[in-house]
């Protein structure tokens, strides 16, 4: 029995058991590979998506429980239509390998939606669940501050 999801404003149907995590429904069921698998135990943040505006680890949300409005990196913005946070990421040349960056960006977008002017401490608190093995953290911080400025300027 297919499960129906609301992803990036459109209704999608996935033919997988309801206990399969949302991460794998996105990646394997729908071919939406922007959301990444890193650990499977909510220890790295690579799979972060937003559900009803809140950042969640999609490896921990069963497909059957994913009833809200899901936003993935694909829904945030595309290369020809960037969200401010993505424009800031590009401006600061944040990514190295880039694998964790979908999760970093979704986490940062959720932070800025809730707190348009985050302090360094706010950034520490919000971003510490997202690992980056390349060590892009200083540029992540700079890009978040830049995006906050861009959004304030409108």
């Amino acid at each position: 029995m297919p499960v129906t999801l609301n992803i990036n404003g459109s209704v999608q149907s996935v033919n997988l058991p309801p206990d399969v995590p949302l991460l794998w429904a996105l990646r394997d069921g729908l071919g939406m590979t922007g959301t990444k698998f890193g650990c499977g135990v909510a220890a790295c943040g690579a799979c972060t998506v937003m559900i009803d505006g809140e950042a969640v680890r999609s490896c921990q949300v069963a497909l059957g429980d994913a009833t809200g409005q899901i936003t993935t990196i694909e829904g945030l913005g595309q290369p020809d239509n960037l969200a401010p946070i993505q424009a800031a990421w590009i401006k600061h040349q944040v990514a190295q390998c880039g694998y964790c960056q979908s999760g970093q960006i979704m986490q940062a977008a959720a932070l800025l939606a809730a707190n348009p002017a985050p302090s360094d401490q706010d950034i520490d608190d919000a971003m510490q669940g997202n690992l980056c093995r390349c060590g892009t953290y200083p540029r992540i911080r700079a890009a978040i501050l830049e995006a906050a400025d861009m959004m304030k300027a409108g």
């Binding site: 590979t33 990196i73 595309q78 290369p79 960037l82 993505q86 040349q93 990514a95 694998y99 960056q101």
Partner: peptide
């Protein structure tokens, strides 16, 4: 010169294709 990386937009929008993304 500091060149804008050619993979930066793809890596900032989830459109970069890693091996694990082969579908």
């Amino acid at each position: 010169k500091a060149m804008p990386r050619l993979d930066m937009a793809a890596k900032s929008t989830g459109t970069a294709q890693f091996g694990i993304d082969t579908w």
